[in-house]
Amino acid sequence: MIIGRYYIDHKSVVPKIVIGALIALVAIFPLFTTNMVTLSIIILSGIWAIAVMGFLLILRTGQFSLGQAAFMAIGGYVSAILTVKMGMSYWPSFVAAGIISGVIAFIIGIVVLRAGGIYFSIITIAFGEIVRIVAMNWESVTQGASGILTHAPESLTVGNLEINFAASVVPYYYFMLLLVTVSALFYWQIDRTRIGGTFRSVAANPVLAEHLGINLMKHRLIAFTVAGLFTGLAGAYYVTFLSVMNPLIFDLWKSVQIMMMTIVGGMGSIVGGPIIGATLLYTLGIYLSRVPIPNIQYLVFGGVVVLLLLVLPKGTGLVDQWGKLWRRVFGEPEDFQMPGEEGMDEE
């Protein structure tokens, strides 16, 4: 599996201040509009971005999991069941959702990571389907296909500021930003430190990595568990925001969408790529669903993804084009050569 070679780093091309300005713009966005629809699109894209980062972290170790939506489902169900059925308040149940999802990822990981490559992907598909079927038929706990209706989180008091989630969508927006920031920092820290390099070596050449004394299983398990934990948190938050949980929200096709978001966004950056991919594809999906012709949204969505994959240069995603676009618009810094570009043209 060729993954490791195309991490082109464009960080040095685009000035940091631009990225900072973009982040600041996102942070003050609710000042311009408190339109419910616009904000919910951003909130949900942010939640998907967390799941996509998890997928990408697992991908860094060379495995691709097609069961990531199942972890969102587990997180969502844990928080919904704890709050609605057991009367727990939301915030502890949110934490519990992440922890339980992480623990399940750890247990599943011990079992299925032994089978690598395509077998791992297929087993994770089977795992996702098992979660869906159990959720559909275990009516006493999950209420089957009709689903569980959840309520808004309790208001939080920070200092003398009361944050009321039931009143407007803005608190959800800022909590989403917090969640994305925390998980992005966590993933980014993993990715840029020694353990991230180890992940890549496990993906690029497992045999060599093992001979160098790297425990393959351990590193794959770390990636899978961390991804499971944050994906579970994302699922729990998603469900609270939608205020309903049923087995159809996170089916296999959501896992497939997570994969598409990863590829389209680009694998070069563990934070930038997922955010770009998730935001673009999720927004595209939402706007397409408003087109009054039934089913055209699937057609266009699939078509756009295939076209993007065909148009984008070899194995890169949108995030890798970001620096190229910057250079085209604002001119090229002197003597700049992208790391790794020399080798790419030969093939």
Binding site: M260, I263, L299, F301, G302, G303
Partner: peptide, 26 residues
């Protein structure tokens, strides 16, 4: 073709699922 990872083609054939289902539904 060389240079693409296996993921590109996996994502593309998965996207075609949506494409054909949408086309058939329409």
């Amino acid at each position: 073709s060389p240079g693409y990872g296996i993921l590109s083609v996996t994502a593309a054939t998965n996207a075609l699922i949506f494409f054909f289902e949408g086309a058939a539904g329409m």
